[in-house]
């Protein structure tokens, strides 16, 4: 099974890897680029734990082939903090105890940032419907929603 050479940008850095056409972008991020922050919870686009942004669009990286990433710019959880400074969402999730096991947290953080990029002042329902594709089994979502809205308020305040 010949593999295809792919060049892309991940978290602002140029990357290259060889991908079997059947490998998903998630497989490539985790197995070829060592970025294990994105998680596989289902492999069918139903849980959102593999969420990344591709050219700014929020997608499930398990529903994108590695070879489709050629020339694209991918943003994963590992790129959310700038240096040592956490993104406000990351800080608020810790502050609000908006995570327990933490397995869904990377996907939810990436999805929440994509939301706030286009809607700086979301209502509770807008946050809940935007995150409906990010399953969490531990928290019952309450503290996650509060943390996202608190981070939004901080970002608006700072803006």
């Amino acid at each position: 099974m010949t593999r295809i050479h792919v060049t892309a940008t991940v978290n602002g850095d140029p990357v290259e890897f060889l991908a079997d056409p059947r490998e998903t972008l998630l497989d490539c991020l985790r197995d070829h680029l060592g970025l294990t922050g994105s998680k596989e919870g289902c492999g069918t686009g139903d849980c959102g734990a593999c969420s990344v942004q591709m050219d700014g669009v929020l997608v499930c990286s398990c529903l994108v082939l590695g070879v489709e990433a050629e020339g694209r710019s991918i943003d994963t959880i590992e790129g959310m903090a700038t240096g040592g400074d956490l993104h406000p969402l990351q800080r608020k999730f810790i502050e609000h105890a908006a995570l327990q096991c933490g397995f869904c947290t990377p996907g939810i953080l990436v999805a929440a940032r994509a939301l706030l990029d286009q809607n700086p002042d979301p209502t509770e329902q807008e946050v809940r419907y935007w995150l409906a594709g990010n399953l969490c089994r531990c928290t019952g979502y309450d503290k996650i929603i509060r943390a996202v809205m608190d981070a939004a308020a901080e970002l608006r305040g700072a803006a």
Partner: peptide
């Protein structure tokens, strides 16, 4: 059709 993420594709 699907989630916000699926809507992206």
């Amino acid at each position: 059709v699907g989630s916000t993420q699926v809507q992206g594709r």
